[in-house]
Amino acid sequence: MAESSRADNRVLLLKLGVIACVMFAFAWALIPLYRVICEVTGINQLVKADAPAAVASDPAVTAAPVRLRFDATVQAGLPWQVRPLVGQMAAPRGEFVRVDYEITNASNREVTGQAVPRYLPAAAGNYVKKLECFCFRQQVFKPGETRRFPVVFVIDRAMPAEIGEITLAYSVFDVPGQGTP
């Protein structure tokens, strides 16, 4: 093989190697990239507070009250008991709704947890505007501590009338590496 073609091969090898490395970096860049896309488009903003002004308050749109159910699931590894004080209620659209959750740390160590809300049907998620929620930040619990958290939200009047029932279900996760063992 001629020397010149050997050199050509090496240059191409280098270029292709750089492409492979850039694509490896791209995989890691996808994490912040997706985060930015979600922020810009407003997808996946479940654990952020909504501004009260964002709620459409056109009184012309009226519909029957919405049946609300509350639930909470604690994921493995988190020694917490999480329960809503009210299992279900009927709430009018466009008005503040308050429900209390009681959380107990059933272990003798300090534990940090994070709640992530989920809505059923998922389409209701865009219309439940949360103003106050324990899911907005990680919660640190001392051994044996019990606390009550108010969850305050408004159901947007713009919500389609065919959604007559919403389940608000929290999954509560252990935050490893936090708290004392």
Partner: peptide
């Protein structure tokens, strides 16, 4: 392959660091 195998390597590395490096 050059475009996507590195992405797979990247994502399984993230799983690895999630598993062992907090």
């Amino acid at each position: 392959i050059i475009a996507v195998m590195p992405v797979l390597a990247g994502v399984v590395t993230m799983v690895l660091t999630d598993r062992h490096f907090g």
